[in-house]
Design a binder for these strands. Sequence first.
DNA 1: ATTGCATTAGACCGACTGGTCAACTATTCC
DNA 2: GGAATAGTTGACCAGTCGGTCTAATGCAAT
Lengths: 205, 205
Amino acid sequence: MGRVSDARQRLIDAAIDLIGRHGYAGTTVDSICDKARVNKGSFYHFFQSKDDLVVAALDRHWEDRKADLDRLFSPAVPPLQRLQNYFQNIYERQTQLKASTGQYAGCIYSSIGSECIEQSPAISRKVQEILSTYARYYESALRDAQAEGLVRIKDLPGKAKSLFAYMEGVLSQAKIQDDPTLLRDLGASAFEFLGLHLQRKLKAS
Amino acid sequence: MGRVSDARQRLIDAAIDLIGRHGYAGTTVDSICDKARVNKGSFYHFFQSKDDLVVAALDRHWEDRKADLDRLFSPAVPPLQRLQNYFQNIYERQTQLKASTGQYAGCIYSSIGSECIEQSPAISRKVQEILSTYARYYESALRDAQAEGLVRIKDLPGKAKSLFAYMEGVLSQAKIQDDPTLLRDLGASAFEFLGLHLQRKLKAS
DNA sequence: ATTGCATTAGACCGACTGGTCAACTATTCC
DNA sequence: GGAATAGTTGACCAGTCGGTCTAATGCAAT
């Protein structure tokens, strides 16, 4: 019953784009409405508040990203190959985003998270939830690699968190310094972090 | 001639604290004035704009931090020891900030930087300047370590940038996830990243 | 003591903030 | 075709934003 509309989706898409570029506080409800070609009243028909929209946008962004990760981290792929493909994917994603928006996007979860702690509990919780789910992909791949004797890691969950933090750091620095080299070498550096050298060990597996 | 005042300094201190917690856009000129017990008129007597204050605050923050770094990265200290002391210093700093403000502060340069690119060129430039100066400490220590045969690194500037990005990532994730473990293990993890194991190799140097 | 100037004070500005509201319109189901 | 319902519209709100302005104030050097 009633009419149907994709305004909700348009608002979410606009929010992801704008917040990715200008941050949470730097993005206004009006600017989101403008970009989505939606009136203020419609915004508050679909969302209770700005924070509500941001949480929905995070959910939606993660839904999309998760589909990629599920493919890249498929157990059908050898564990170290998963990581290599994944880091390659990050490089390609960021390169593409830079081409279309003019700058590296970094990680939207971390960007929003570091801005919103102490300001919006709802957003913080969502970001924390996404980031810890995200990091589990690392842990799983490393555990499989360990089981196959490809790596020797003492504190496996710790190493997974470290590697994840490294990836986040690279994304952040690439964005701030507008530097592609860190992103390009992300995979190779990550493998060194694991005590591996890309060419030799990967061929062996 | 005329009176003297420390209002300028109070404004900078207040800005560092507030921006560290709520970000650039999330910190208002009024809130800075309130915290510094300074009136709006005085603010604009000392600074041309909000951005002007932020740049001054970044300068001031870096001035203080630089003094610490100069001590920690003194050539009088063995190069790997410099890094160990430095990572320990980060852990202590963040722990202390968490105790006094209730949360890990992360890196104020990266936080502001990732928020202000595309919004404020002046602030972006300042952040980029500070971050690249900062990373030189890493490069210098690694070069000295290499010269003493303590590490074997092919792309030394690249490795320095990677290690720096790792540190930034750890700070960011520690802040968002409110997780002390990453910070505690930062030094040990960094040495693994360099292909070293803390206890053994450090004793050898 | 006076004068000159750095500083202080806070009312004020227009633009914009997140959010509300009531009237209106189109669609879908019966 | 007529309810019932989902979505649209844009004027409006109180509060806040970064920033301006003029008058007052007090210290420092003469």
